[in-house]
Simulated assay, not measured.
Amino acid sequence: MQIVKYAFQQHGDDRGMLVALEEYNDIPFEIKRVYYMYDTKEGVTRGYHAHKSLKQILICIHGSCKIRLDNGREKKIVSLEKPYEGLYVPNNMWREMYDFSPDAVLMVLASEVYREEDYIRDYDTFLKMVKEGLEHA
């Protein structure tokens, strides 16, 4: 499994730092939705799903968290702890976000608007879809 972690260009001076993100320049898709998670309670894991077509960039803009990625064949854990780093999560990738620091703010840039029918919320269904996709590839 190839993990793509972006280090976004930072601009700074004596006033502080700035990161600007542009679709297709810094983000490999058109951004159709932005949302963020914060005040995640200790011990809570978020996610537990994959998407059929949606792609995402996850950026922990404050604090830190970990992302468990699973493509149905292998699993990897990625730490997000710098506000200028983003993790690309393609479609058909199971994700679980956990180990949030108390001050964590995880921002997500998404390639599609919210559509419940795009979610794969059952892990066994996800594994079956991955297996069927491999058999038809």
Rank of each mutant, 00 (worst) to 15 (best):
V78Q: 08
N92A: 08
E112Q: 14
D70E: 10
P83T: 11
D99V: 03
D99P: 03
A104S: 13
Y88N: 07
L80Y: 01
L80Q: 00
K66L: 05
H62M: 13
P102M: 04
L106F: 03
I59S: 01
K82H: 15
S64V: 02
E96V: 11
N92W: 09
D99R: 07
D103E: 15
W94N: 03
V78C: 10
K66Y: 05
W94F: 09
P83L: 11
G72M: 05
G72I: 04
M97T: 11
D103I: 07
P102S: 09
S111P: 09
C60R: 00
K76Q: 15
R68P: 02
M97W: 05
D103P: 05
P83A: 14
I61F: 02
L69D: 01
V113T: 15
E85L: 08
G86N: 09
E96R: 10
N71F: 07
C65H: 00
V105S: 06
K66S: 12
N91F: 11
E81T: 13
E74I: 10
S111R: 06
C65V: 01
G63N: 05
R68C: 12
G72S: 08
I67P: 00
A104V: 04
I67A: 12
I67S: 01
M107L: 14
Y88Q: 10
D99S: 13
A104W: 00
C60I: 00
S111A: 13
D103T: 12
S101V: 04
I59H: 01
L106M: 12
E81Q: 12
L109P: 01
G86T: 08
S101T: 14
V89E: 06
K66F: 04
S79L: 10
S64Y: 09
K66Q: 14
P90T: 08
I67L: 09
G63F: 04
D70F: 07
I61N: 04
M93D: 05
I61Y: 02
V78F: 10
A110E: 03
Y84F: 13
R68A: 14
E112I: 07
I59A: 01
F100A: 02
K75E: 15
S111C: 10
M97H: 05
G86K: 06
P90K: 06
V78P: 07
D99I: 03
E85I: 07
S101C: 07
N71S: 11
M97C: 13
V113D: 14
K75H: 09
P102K: 09
L109K: 02
L80H: 02
Y98V: 03
R68V: 10
C60Q: 00
H62Y: 10
N91H: 14
L69H: 03
A110N: 04
D103Q: 11
A110P: 02
S111E: 14
C60N: 02
I61Q: 06
R73L: 13
K75D: 13
S79A: 12
E96D: 15
N91S: 14
F100W: 03
N91Y: 11
Y98A: 03
E81W: 10
Y98F: 15
C65W: 00
V89N: 05
R68K: 15
A104F: 02
G63I: 05
V105E: 08
S79F: 06
I77M: 12
D70Y: 08
